[in-house]
Design a protein around this nucleic acid. Structure first.
Lengths: 242, 242
DNA sequence: GGTTTGATCTTTACAACGTAAAGATATGAC
DNA sequence: GTCATATCTTTACGTTGTAAAGATCAAACC
């Protein structure tokens, strides 16, 4: 209660241009300091610097440590600087998640392309999925655990869709068929949901440490990779010669 | 910087007894107000009231709205009252998650007992898992998405272990074998991981709305339940007569 | 029965955070 | 060279978690 005096004033007309990030991204960039040694008022490419700082903070301090102010500190700018580029924390986190989905998708595509047999493509993609999450647990958390994601942002929407579409294509390939865009059968839907659920569920449980109990009871030092491999091979709907 | 004057004083010796909650829980409880109409200084069973308030806040405002102060407001006490019973926010959230795991486990056990065929027990349990998550998305979020869980708390540790042990038993039953406590084969581990991953992954994806794209492309108004059923039946390692 | 002890709840206080708004500074267009 | 505008800083405020000290009551003790 007791609204501040500023709130009673006329709403400022300055603009809050809503899309300054675009203008910044289209600039030449990497135009750091005019005189070496002192930090210039204008950073040059703060948006990119903030995203990289955010990833460092994330992997160092976890999802809870990923605050606007911490990112600004890490990048060496004032705590309000990120606002101009991302609007709010949701904006920063969403852009970071979009980057994650793109790296993620790229890792799966690369892994899939390294194999020739369709069935192996799927396996390789799935393993790349898990491997990426293990290598970047913070990013995986941002993508699938953060409560502050705005999927109406085109970048996040597109990156996320692309990643899941890639997974779907992989499922279709392993079934020697193409998943149509419009109508699909319950059998096809079940295959897609199964592949997604298996890989995503395994990854979540693994990162949460809920599989350690099982891994410890396995012979010698069986790796999570081997468990994943065994799990997936048993789940595949009878490949012709396996 | 500039430590407050209080911090320079001698550390208070008052006690901060560390386990007042236990004493409160063992009390007769439900001894509300001495004179009807005014709120008494001592609540009677504030711990329980706070947990119920927390669940209401959670399902109403989501995980982000679940703050210590919001819970205190909902329960009608001062914002610092929860501290005495749960230590900090992590404590409150952890106890809430423990309740979730217990309800969760109970729902699965009940569903499993309603079937006679081992294979059907597993299916029913899995469906109960998903149904519980759909009915209590907030609680599911606290259990599997919250960054503030302290598994060193006995209540949470035990409740979580019991829930996963129940899942494992279900897997063993559907394979017509008992999963041993100590050493297990890679094949058994894969079966367990597969069941957990399928159910947990499906639930996560469903709650996150990542399956809507698939559901929409299915004939008519196919439900998520039907998709789950189809997914699970296809994943089961060839039941004798199905 | 009266006192006392300690658990329970409130009040006060503070640092960190997200966010808004206004000021400072440099860049590019004219 | 001037000026508009994008970029960054400074200041300010409400909210949160948490610590600490004070207020109140229940039960134990004598």
């Amino acid at each position: 209660m007791a609204k501040t005096s500023r709130e009673n004033k006329v709403v400022r007309t300055v603009a809050r241009t809503r899309k300054p990030a675009r203008a910044a991204a289209e600039r030449p960039a990497v135009r750091r300091r005019k005189s070496p040694g002192d930090t210039p008022y204008h950073h040059g490419d703060l948006r990119e610097a903030l995203l990289q700082a955010a990833e460092r903070v994330l992997e160092r301090d976890g999802l809870a440590g990923l605050t606007l102010r911490a990112v600004a500190r890490e990048a060496g700018v004032s705590h309000a600087a990120p606002t101009h580029h991302f609007g709010d924390l949701t904006g920063l986190v969403s852009e970071l998640a979009a980057i994650g989905f793109r790296m993620f998708n790229e890792a799966m595509v690369t892994a899939g392309n390294s194999e020739t047999l369709p069935i192996m493509k799927g396996l390789a993609s799935a393993k790349a999925y898990v491997a990426y999450a293990q290598a970047h647990p913070g990013m995986y958390g941002v993508m699938f655990r953060s409560a502050r994601l705005d999927y109406s942002r085109p970048s996040l929407h597109e990156a996320s869709d692309a990643a899941f579409a890639g997974l779907t294509r992989g499922v279709g390939a392993s079934r020697h068929e193409q998943i149509p865009q419009d109508g699909i059968s319950l059998d096809q839907a079940a295959a897609i949901a199964r592949a997604w659920s298996l890989v995503h569920g395994f990854t979540t449980l693994l990162l949460d440490g809920r599989l350690t109990g099982i891994l410890e009871r396995l012979p010698e030092g069986t790796s999570a990779d081997q468990l994943l491999d065994a799990m997936l091979r048993g789940a595949v709907p009878r490949p012709p010669g396996a």
